[in-house]
Amino acid sequence: MSADQRSIKVYNLGTTSYGDAHALQRRLQAQRREGGGVDSLLITEHRPVITLGRSHPVPSLRVEADVVRNYGIEIVQTERGGDITYHGPGQLVAYGIVDLKAWECSVLDFVSGLEETAIGVLADWGVRGERVEGARGVWVGGRKIASVGLHVRRWVTMHGIALNIDPDMSHFDLINPCGMPEVEMTSLSAEVGKQVGIDEVGESFVFHFGRVLACQAEVVELNQRKSVVGGQ
């Protein structure tokens, strides 16, 4: 497959627990690594969860761990790069399981592509997102709106980008996002000053993903969603 034949199947999983989506990603990545499967883009929202990057096993919290537990928020260790982050309802999470070798795309270009996709989405709502040298993710006027984190093995990616649409922002106060205590988080709703539907954002994300990374994105209807994400 050459670069102009890139294609990806998009699965909108709805709201999932982190564990379910993670298990699905691992399966897809392993399959892709062995030369099977298809390149996939998983769009989902998670129930509240805090995840840690592989190199930062100690959570960088602003509060006691007990407080986080009392919120009913789990802390999960993952294999991705980067530091601590929060996922929750109202946050669009996109995971790409992509064979970069087949796409003839470098890892950093893929990360940049995810960021540009988010910037394209923000532009659709009239918000100017930008990338900042030395600090991955997407920023709006110095506030962070999207976080990236990837794991790559045999040039197959997993994990991806999390774009805040209208999450419970108070949950971000529990952590030092990306391990940086001074980072202020924001959301698309906060930036445009009204509620934004996450489904619309999902559609926009898929469109821009196809445009930025020059691939054919095919949305797969998931009537059998229950069996895919396991028990939800």
Binding site: S55, R80, G81, L108, G137, G149, L150, H151, R153, C178
Partner: peptide, 18 residues
């Protein structure tokens, strides 16, 4: 062969080297 032996990190990307 094919077993991950180490990991590198750059730009929030963790890459396992086999």
């Amino acid at each position: 062969q094919g077993e991950p032996v180490c990991r590198i990190e750059s730009d929030y990307v963790a890459v396992e080297i086999e």
